[in-house]
């Protein structure tokens, strides 16, 4: 696992640093932009971060790295797990950074109201964690050629379902809006964690079946 993580981080630093830079830029802008704009900008930053893993997966396929892994003393499950560790490690780091940064910003501006920061962070968690929970198994299964198309199609469908739910599930939204942040937060985190776990299990299954 050590070797895999080392190689992933070096690859990201070498080839995907632009995503990290963009995220930093968006965070910087969000730091100085007040209110809603700042939140949206920060969320764009997170979107950048969630694209890193797809880029890494595709790069590893094109360079033949995963094929080379077949010769190393590691299991396919370890290979898959390494992607999840890297991805969610980075996303968590970026979200924590956001929380710290924005909290500091608010305090510096004399406000103690951090509710906004945390609710945005929750949205970030949901969006980024779930997006990558979707993209990792798709990229592993369909590769870098068919993957993007399928990814797009699935995301499209899910967004469509989500929007129609939002439009028709007024009652649901009201209930959710009525609950204290902590409860909503916990529910969201639980659902997200379950989704990530399911995604990991599917990815392992998919990759273990692969024929080189």
């Amino acid at each position: 696992m050590r070797g895999l993580l080392y190689k992933h981080f070096r690859t990201i630093a070498k080839e995907m640093w632009s995503f990290l830079l963009l995220c930093a830029v968006f965070y910087a802008v969000a730091f100085f932009a007040p209110g809603m704009e700042g939140n949206t900008t920060a969320i764009y930053g997170m979107l950048m971060m969630s694209m890193v893993i797809t880029s890494l997966l595709r790069s590893d396929e094109t360079t033949g790295w995963r094929r080379y892994c077949e010769l190393l003393p590691i299991s396919r499950k370890e290979v898959v797990t390494s992607y999840y560790l890297v991805n969610y490690g980075m996303l968590t780091g970026a979200i924590l950074l956001y929380i710290v940064l924005m909290s500091l910003g608010k305090v510096w501006r004399g406000s103690a109201d951090l509710q906004n920061v945390f609710s945005t962070a929750l949205v970030m968690v949901a969006v980024s964690f779930l997006l990558s929970a979707l993209s990792i198994p798709i990229t592993l299964k369909f590769g870098s050629v068919k993957g993007p198309a399928i990814h797009f199609a699935v995301t499209f469908m899910i967004v469509g379902v989500g929007i129609s739910l939002l439009n028709n599930g007024d009652k649901m939204v009201e209930t959710v809006a009525g609950m204290p942040l902590a409860i909503t937060g916990l529910i969201m985190i639980a659902v997200t964690a379950a989704a990530v776990l399911l995604s990991w299990m599917i990815s392992v299954r998919v990759y273990e079946k692969k024929e080189y």
Partner: peptide, 23 residues
């Protein structure tokens, strides 16, 4: 495939070597 630790004892030189290109 189920016992990857055995690959410690096996050295393979494939027909195409795919090591990280930037290293």
């Amino acid at each position: 495939a189920g016992n990857p630790a055995m690959k410690e004892e096996i050295g393979v030189v494939p027909d195409e070597v795919f090591l990280p290109p930037f290293m």
